[in-house]
Design a protein around this nucleic acid. Structure first.
Lengths: 245, 245
DNA sequence: CGAACGTTTGAGATGACTCAAGCGTTGTGG
DNA sequence: CCACAACGCTTGAGTCATCTCAAACGTTCG
């Protein structure tokens, strides 16, 4: 099913068959979007939500000089702009990073579904709160980690999320991003990202090269980035990582 | 009423009298909490939500060395840990910054209320999504602003939030924080915060002194911090600020 | 083959940090 | 009522992580 990825691996809010079917029926269109395309603009009311089926998307805020701060990236199975369902309009922009496939669900349909099923409504609420938890982890990353730690943290996070999505084997995964994308995510210059990646490689922690990531030493990389997977609320990560200590 | 501050000023999700009354009835206790007290710990399941009635509280993540990165501050009228209602347990800690008065609502009560009223459930969802929007603004602050900009941005945000809460006249407000708290919020050292505050004072932008803030030039301060109030979703701020340009 | 784009490397500049010390206020016990 | 301890604020000097500017390199694709 198209909705197979939704809340996959999240034991507190797994969708049952009926809920999945109700969401599925609400999909009015499946669409391909080219890479590097803006799909939603801050302040503009939205009338549908996008469920990402394939590819990578991001949410970002522009500064005065046109530089973007990424505030989220999304992997297959994520609702990209579910926040706009209660909020009506967003405070940030949404764009594809790679070529992407998305399913569209009108807010009106979602309204019917959530009104009829408080349990499903709460699970969708849950999904947006995981986004919020990831925001907080990103705040920690920017606020408390140095450049090497930030990149390490991001790669660990992405590994866990892609593993839950069935797109990483727990160590190696495709990640079709540029060094300048990592820079926008970690708030570094792309030049410095380049040096950081070399350092991570030299220290045998992880390798990011030609759209491919390999965590050579997942534990050490997590330690370097003070990464603790519990904020992602995915099953099997209760004790992972190394936040405390 | 105790719930008068909830979603105050948020036109998209104002509570009607019945909703307010239902929330009000669900309050089982009003409690005073001393300053600098931790009220919730990451990973520990919660069974009630706190509505902040008076004082300032914060949410934070500790790093390995015990330094804290604040990920949110809360002003009167805010639900402090509503995220834990769907999430069950939090990914961060919650603490008071000043002496605080809080109202407690058991999750069980909240469950009854939200199941009975999808409209109220969606407004509570909305409240948590404003928190998420603030997280994103904080990401922008850490990722794209220099030290002076970060402090300016934070003071502008706090001014708008306290104005909505009826605790600022739009220019001047009490803010019982230390310079080291600003440091934890803006990811600076308290020493540098001190120098930044002097600079903001010297440039006639704003003054933070002895638990009191005055925005001498609100527009210029917003410009310096690239602050655009729209992410706070409060009425009357549709065109405020200076994000674009 | 050349243009466009992303990556890599070097050298110098700088904003914020660290360490160190002095200052001012507040609260408390002798 | 004074002395002093505790705490937060302020200032200075030197250090360092990351940035900026500049240029070369390697692919990909038309």
């Amino acid at each position: 099913m198209l909705t197979d990825g939704v809340l996959r691996g999240v034991q507190e809010a797994t969708l049952d068959v009926g809920e999945r079917r109700r969401l599925e029926r609400a999909i009015v269109e499946v669409r391909e979007v080219a890479a590097r395309t803006t799909t939603a603009t801050a302040g503009v009311p939205l009338h549908q939500v996008m469920l990402l089926l394939d590819g990578l998307m991001c949410r970002f805020i522009d500064d005065r000089k046109g530089f973007r701060q990424l505030v989220a990236i999304h992997v297959p199975g994520d609702f990209v702009d579910l926040h706009a369902f209660p909020l009506r309009y967003l405070d940030h922009h949404v764009a594809t990073m790679t070529k992407a496939t998305v399913a569209l669900i009108p807010h009106a349909q979602l309204h019917l579904i959530t009104t009829a099923s408080p349990a499903l409504a709460q699970k969708l609420w849950f999904a947006t709160l995981i986004d919020a938890a990831i925001h907080r982890a990103w705040l920690f990353r920017l606020g408390r980690l140095d450049a090497v730690g930030r990149v390490a943290h991001f790669l660990c996070e992405t590994n866990v999320r892609l593993t839950a999505a069935g797109l990483s084997d727990g160590r190696r995964f495709a990640l079709d991003l540029r060094q300048s994308d990592l820079a926008d995510i970690c708030s570094l210059t792309s030049i410095h990202v380049n040096r950081v990646l070399r350092q991570l490689r030299d220290e045998r922690l992880c390798v990011f090269r030609s759209s491919w990531v390999e965590l050579l030493d997942p534990e050490a990389t997590a330690r370097r980035g003070q990464f603790d997977a519990r904020y992602l609320y995915v099953a099997g990560n209760e004790t992972a990582g190394a936040r405390s200590g």
